[in-house]
Design a protein around this nucleic acid. Structure first.
Length: 602
RNA sequence: GAGUCCAUAGCUCAGGUGGAUAGAGCAACAGCCUUCUAAGCUGUGGGUCGGGGGUUCGAGUCCCUCUGGACUCGCCA
């Protein structure tokens, strides 16, 4: 059960994985600048590329090389180094406009039209593969996410894991990794003994068919109420679970039925989110593999009896012992995760194994990984816990037991309804004749996008304070903002196309894209691929969310400042359409990597 | 008690390996729709980056310390 208890932040800043070593220096302007500076400074081009900064104001240049680090070795003031370096930059570099030495910086002003064209064309040629690479080719990443509990409602906490995992799946796939998506269902434990007991007493067959999880939750809650009066029920539940574990056919059949019904209901949510899994082995799947794990730990002399239980000591790592077998001989959460990790390695031979599970379980995973390491599994170091914060109300936690929760279904419903309202109003104001199917489709996708966006907006370590007001506010940094921007850009391209005006570059002087707005957009395009890579390395989709949002903001400024279709010359119109094309496809790709589906109009 | 994490604008958050004047969104206020979609754009106000030390050319960023908060710590999952 991945959502037993919840608490806030640990894990901040822990990288999910170092970049693999064979990373190539990309061909881009930073590399070009590094090439110019390599000779004069005697530094490695890759190091220079890394040092390059963007000045705080575009009037100060497009790139800055800080000379401060050279001051010690060169025994000169940074400002003097900058001036000296400037003299060594050859004249007549086509992509460079000029350089200026100011303070300790050597600032580079790019040839704007060339740069804008280069960045836009790079995106347009890549299309849906913009920002993609083959750095992950031949490598497998297992990502466990979502992991709801059978017979319990799918709430916003699971939505967080689901949104994160889905995005991490897409981002890694974009970088060429083979990604295996695991849904580690909570389908095991005494709770199922309780459910079986409760169902035999109070179960309503019709209700179970109609709304399985609601019915299972109902009888589960009722069981707890009854157990307060009659503690013997708890014993009965334990006995039933033991029968289940021992393979009693009747209990197995009921358990399987609960599982199937729950899975079917989860499936509807996953379909709406466009989420799928390669494997939904739950905790129960790994139970039978535990004896072999225990045996291995015993062979290696790691298993130690303590207070009747069998544990692996982790004192040398400053961690509490990891309990592998309870004093009654039964297995425990950690033993199942040990077995699961080993099975995944054998099955998929992963290069990296990610667990998108809430922060509360940080210690649990530290222990599990440590035990794997001690047991001689060198690949333990490739396992990472990708933690995330708690979803809570401003003043209190969500509580499934008391029904004080936000179910994902309800959240999606509200967002969809709020979206629909805006669409109806806009359509009326603009005199659009959109049919109901289109409006339904749009409100569904925009509403879902809004939900996903809120989960991927900030670093995952942060708690999410749930507020309906914020949730249904579609202004500013939200999915509707980005989607709206995309729809506007697409609208321009459609109108151009309808008028026979297609994107095209021209060498005509009037077609040069050199405005601040255009430069800003080109810089956003330039930064996109690197941001995809950073998001993957840190397992932080919000980096991409922010980048995409910033790009949308830049575009909206541009849109308001300049007329694209009404530009001064036909050549300029076409050149601007190229930029619009590049930006819109980047937005679409970025949104896709976040798990959000773009809309062509709204 | 031990350990982990957090503290930046009224609110929610950004500020990769220390670098130029600490940035967005929301909220507030003032503007912009006969012109490519106003779910948009522009402007204004709002900060001793929790307090105090230290490291150095330079600290929101690194170290120490204090305060305040969240969470975890062998037989639940």
């Amino acid at each position: 059960m991945r959502f037993h208890v919840q608490y806030r932040g640990i894990q901040n800043g822990i990288p999910c994985g170092e970049p693999f070593a064979d990373w190539r220096l990309p061909m881009d302007v930073r590399t070009d600048i590094a090439g110019l500076l390599a000779g004069p400074t005697g530094l490695d081009p890759a190091a220079i590329r890394d040092l390059l900064e963007t000045p705080p104001d575009s009037r100060m240049g497009d790139y800055a090389f800080p000379c401060f680090p050279l001051a010690k070795t060169m025994r000169k003031a940074p400002s003097a180094i900058a001036a000296a370096l400037q003299d060594l930059i050859p004249a007549g570099v086509s992509w460079l406009d000029r350089t200026v030495a100011v303070g300790g910086y050597l600032n580079f002003y790019l040839d704007r039209p060339a740069f804008v064209r280069r960045q836009a064309e790079e995106a347009r040629q890549a299309g849906d593969r913009f920002g993609a690479s083959d750095e992950g080719r031949g490598r497998t990443i297992v990502v466990e996410f979502s992991s709801p509990n059978i017979a319990k409602p799918f709430h916003v906490g699971h939505a967080f894991s689901t949104a994160l995992g889905q995005s991490l799946y897409r981002i890694h796939a974009h970088l060429g990794y083979h990604v295996v998506r695991m849904n580690h269902l909570g389908d095991y434990g005494t709770q199922f003994g309780k459910l079986i007991s409760a169902y035999r007493r109070w179960g309503d067959e019709a209700a179970l068919e109609a709304a399985p999880i609601a019915e299972l939750l109902r009888i589960y809650v009722r069981f707890h109420e009854a157990a307060r009066e009659d503690p013997a029920l708890e014993d009965e539940a334990r006995t039933l679970f033991r029968r289940l574990e021992d393979g009693a056919p009747e209990e197995i059949a009921l358990w399987k039925r609960f599982r199937d019904l729950s899975l079917k209901e989860f499936g509807r949510v996953y379909d709406r989110l466009d989420v799928a899994f390669d494997n939904d082995n739950g905790e129960s799947f790994y139970g039978p593999m535990i004896p072999a794990v225990v045996e291995r730990l015993r062979e290696r002399g790691l298993l130690e009896e303590s207070e009747g239980a069998f544990v692996v000591r982790l004192d040398d790592l400053g961690l509490p012992p990891c309990i592998v077998l309870k004093s009654d001989g039964a297995t425990i959460y950690a033993s199942r995760d040990l077995a699961a990790a080993i099975w995944r390695k054998e099955q998929y031979d992963f290069d990296r194994n990610l667990y998108v599970v809430g922060n509360p379980q940080s210690l649990h995973f530290q222990q599990v990984f440590a035990v794997l390491e001690k047991a001689g599994y060198a690949w333990a170091s490739t396992c990472r816990h990708v933690g995330f914060g708690l979803v809570r109300f401003p003043d209190r936690k969500l509580s499934t037991r008391s029904g004080d929760v936000v179910l994902l279904d309800d959240l999606l419903q509200e967002c969809r309804a709020a979206t629909r309202e805006i669409i109806d109003r806009n359509a009326a104001e603009r005199g659009m004749n959109w049919d109901n199917d289109l409006k339904d489709d749009l409100s569904e996708r925009i509403g879902i996008g809004a939900v996903i966006y809120t989960f991927l907006k900030n670093s995952r370590d942060r708690d999410i304070v749930f507020s309906w007001d914020d949730m249904l506010d579609f202004d500013g940094e939200t999915a509707p903002y980005v989607l709206y921007t995309y729809a506007r850009a697409r609208s321009i391209l459609r109108k151009g196309e309808a008028a026979g005006v297609l994107p095209a570059w021209s060498d005509h002087p009037s077609a040069a894209l050199a405005a601040d707005d255009e430069m800003a957009l080109a810089r956003m395009l330039e930064g996109f691929p690197d941001m995809v890579r950073r998001a993957a390395e840190s397992c932080e989709p919000y980096l991409l969310t922010r980048h995409v949002t910033a790009m949308a903001r830049s575009f909206n400024k541009y849109y308001n400042n300049e007329s694209i279709l009404g530009a001064a010359s036909p050549e300029l119109v076409r050149a601007r359409l190229c930029l619009v094309d590049a930006v819109s496809l980047s937005l679409r790709v970025g949104l896709h990597l976040l798990g959000i589906s773009a809309v062509e109009r709204m």
